[in-house]
Design a protein around this nucleic acid. Structure first.
Length: 190
DNA sequence: TGCCTGATGTTCT
DNA sequence: GAACATCAGGCAC
């Protein structure tokens, strides 16, 4: 792991905050490049009742028990994929859910894929996976490699990071584990 | 503008 | 067999 990704081996919460402002470059199956900025994240780890890793390793969540910097993809509600970046030390189940991204390049591709334009194309965990065409093919993918690369950007000032409670979960929903960039219009609603 | 609900499959119990 | 880290469309106000 390159030194610039070392922050991922800290706690999931540290990784979630540090990932804000970083970029992802997605090379689509057709060869087009889409570049997005991460604007909203959530942290999960095995001490958290809402986490998939809370009850120990299973076939599904083994990526989050592996080394940091890999993609954990899961399917939910019968029609949506969600994407996480594994964090922490190997053997400890932790990860960061990507909740919203801001398109920087390839916005036309995103709008074509999603069928809609503007903020609503990528401002939710199920939306951004569809926009970036993330599915089980990318489960366990190394984020240092194509077709989905994590690009580290300078750390944001703490004053730009907003910390709130999580959304759309039933357990430990009051935990302050959701983070987003202050004032960014691509952050999900509620 | 805001609540309610249907869609729909993987995963774990 | 039930839960689920969601989304979008419809209808009421």
């Amino acid at each position: 792991m390159p030194a610039e990704l070392d922050f991922l081996t800290g706690t999931a919460t540290q990784a979630a905050k540090r990932l804000l402002g970083c970029e992802l470059i997605r090379t689509l199956p057709g060869g087009q490049k889409v570049r997005v900025k991460i604007v909203e994240t959530e942290s999960y780890d095995q001490t958290d009742p809402a986490s998939h890793t809370y009850n120990g390793p299973t076939q599904r969540n083994q990526v989050m028990f592996g080394p940091a910097g890999f993609l954990y993809v899961y399917f939910t509600y019968g029609m949506h994929y969600c994407a996480n970046i594994s964090a922490g030390q190997a053997g400890f189940g932790a990860g960061v859910l990507l909740r919203a991204v801001e398109p920087l390049e390839g916005q036309d591709e995103v709008e074509q894929i999603r069928g809609i334009a503007g903020v609503n194309a990528t401002n939710g965990p199920g939306k951004l996976t569809k926009a970036l065409q993330i599915d089980f093919d990318l489960r366990g993918h190394n984020l240092q490699l194509e077709p989905l690369e994590l690009i580290v950007r300078p750390e944001l000032d703490q004053s730009q990071i907003v910390t709130t409670t999580r959304i759309g979960i039933s357990k430990a929903a009051e935990d302050l584990r959701r983070f987003y960039i202050a004032g960014n219009k691509y952050v999900s609603k509620k």
